[in-house]
């Protein structure tokens, strides 16, 4: 299968290792990955902040980029950005009165999958240890990000994949379904409420005793990781893709609290 990678702006600029790991996993399954060059961002920061006018060119760019390449499905290592592509893009176009863009955005959205959704529903990954050689001998707790959980209804897909990783011990996160408090510009506009939500999330993560908090969205993980780092907790954050890409021969190192010592092995 030919798979177009939507890296998402935050992974592209801040956490390239999650996109590299996504490529590694997909290639290991024998698929061809392409990277549409014109891509930039899904625009949800603009939409969610009420800047619909400013979101239009961002959406138009995404649609153009993912029309310019020939592929079977597109994938992003983010539930939130995929939800934006699927649900917000047609709405932004509609609000701008651009029926043509709405139609094209809907078509791109239909072909776009969140990583765990693609792996489980389309590529038939049921046993990451067996099919991908996934190996990660650490204690891990898992935060299901809100948009993946509620907008994409990912259910058990991400946690299920983690459970199938050899050596990984998955520890239940108390109050897992509670938002971490990120919410894009919410974290600066309502910084105090956001910090209070984060404090409860990090306390729950630390109560598990896990050495890693995993998730499927680097936006939330940046927020949670930023709190864990400030608290000098010693708990690291890692993307699901990085854990799936880790193998016995070339394990992903558990990063320090600031999240920078990881070594990602591709191919």
């Amino acid at each position: 299968m030919k798979i177009a990678l939507f890296a998402t702006c935050i992974v592209d600029g801040m956490y390239p290792r999650a996109a590299q790991a996504t490529v590694a996993v997909l290639e290991r399954l024998g698929h061809e990955v392409v990277f549409p060059k014109g891509q930039a961002c899904c625009g949800q920061m603009h939409v969610n902040s009420g800047y619909f006018k400013e979101a239009v060119p961002v959406v138009a760019n995404h649609v153009r980029a993912f029309e310019s390449e020939d592929y079977d499905v597109a994938v992003a290592p983010s539930g939130s950005c995929v939800a934006s592509v699927k649900h917000q893009h047609p709405m932004v176009a509609r609000r701008a009165g651009d029926a043509g863009l709405e139609e094209r955005a809907t078509a791109v959205g239909k072909k776009t999958y969140e990583l765990s959704e693609l792996l489980v529903d389309v590529l038939g990954v049921t046993d990451p240890a067996g099919q991908l050689g996934s190996y990660f001998p650490h204690t891990v707790t898992y935060h299901p990000s809100c948009h993946g959980m509620r907008l994409l209804k990912l259910g058990d897909r991400q946690a299920g994949l983690l459970r199938g990783v050899e050596g990984l011990e998955l520890l239940d996160l108390p109050e897992a379904d509670q938002c971490c408090g990120f919410g894009g510009t919410f974290s600066v506009k309502n910084a105090d409420v956001s910090s209070a939500m984060l404090a409860d999330k990090t306390a729950n993560i630390r109560s598990t005793g896990a050495s890693v908090c995993a998730g499927g969205d680097y936006s939330c993980l940046m927020h949670i990781g930023g709190g864990l780092s400030r608290q000098e907790s010693g708990v690291a954050t890692l993307h699901l893709a990085e854990i799936l890409a880790s193998t016995e021969a070339e394990p992903v190192a558990v990063p320090g609290p600031a999240g920078q010592t990881v070594k990602v092995v591709v191919k």
Binding site: S187, V188, S229
Partner: peptide
């Protein structure tokens, strides 16, 4: 306004290159 973020969270140092650059080199 970004001080609202750093009141309770750090930001990790950015990587030395973006995914886009890594991909292009690869």
């Amino acid at each position: 306004i970004a001080a609202g973020w750093t009141q309770s969270r750090d930001i990790p140092a950015p990587p030395s290159q973006s995914f886009r650059d890594w991909w292009a080199k690869e």
